[in-house]
């Protein structure tokens, strides 16, 4: 426990967290072939890994609900996918989540949180605080990772849930894992 706490405290100075590499490996082992995303800084390392992977199709969306529909189409065609998005994008997906819910299709969503631990920007709060409730209202099974060591096991668990029970599942990757931005510091620079 002390070890984990120390890691979390020091992560601002730590050069590169290893969890995105673990997540990449887990998603490859799960057979993910289509990656749909609206970028977020917290996903940048994972996005780079998929971009360099010739076996995976990385698709940039104009809005996150496109990804819900695209991965439903992928499933109809026999491919597995993952949707990478920020918590604000969850709000864009709500009605489209009818699709995996009513069709019993797998949907794996990895959501990097804003409006969460240590948030500086007040405009991120409403959707950030509403993210989990919104997903659960639409029948998505939600788990959270709030330490770097939790991310890989939570993604492994959600991938298994989604692809083995044919349901939508989301992992919320907390801001404590990602590190909170400090805009006052950024503005001074």
């Amino acid at each position: 426990m002390a070890d984990t706490a120390a890691k979390t405290k020091d992560q601002a100075t730590a050069p590169l967290p290893s969890w995105p590499d673990d997540v990449y490996r887990i998603l490859k082992e799960a057979g993910v072939k289509q990656v749909a995303m609206v970028p977020d800084a917290g996903h940048s390392r994972l996005i780079r890994a998929f971009d360099a992977d010739p076996e995976t199709r990385l698709v940039t969306l104009t809005t996150e609900e496109e990804g819900v529909a695209m991965l439903a189409g992928a499933w109809l065609g026999g491919q597995r996918g993952v949707l990478l998005l920020q918590s604000s994008g969850v709000g864009n997906c709500i009605n489209m989540l009818s699709l995996p819910a009513i069709c019993h299709m797998p949907l794996l969503m990895l959501v990097t949180m804003r409006g969460d631990w240590g948030e500086f920007n007040p405009w991120q709060i409403p959707m950030g605080q509403g993210t989990q409730a919104s997903l659960e209202a639409m029948g998505v099974i939600v788990t959270r990772a709030d330490t770097p060591d939790d991310v890989a096991p939570m993604v492994w668990g959600a991938a298994n849930l989604a692809f083995n029970t044919w349901r939508p599942a989301a992992v919320l990757i907390g801001q404590r894992v990602l590190g909170a931005k400090n805009f006052k510091e950024l503005a001074r620079k």
Binding site: V59, G67, A69, G73, A74, L76, G77, M96
Partner: peptide, 25 residues
Amino acid sequence: NFPLWGAMGAAAMMGLGLALAQPKR
């Protein structure tokens, strides 16, 4: 056929995911 009864706005993107998954069809 995959006829949608809801999820308005989904049709074209479902077509994309399907087309990428089944490049020979």
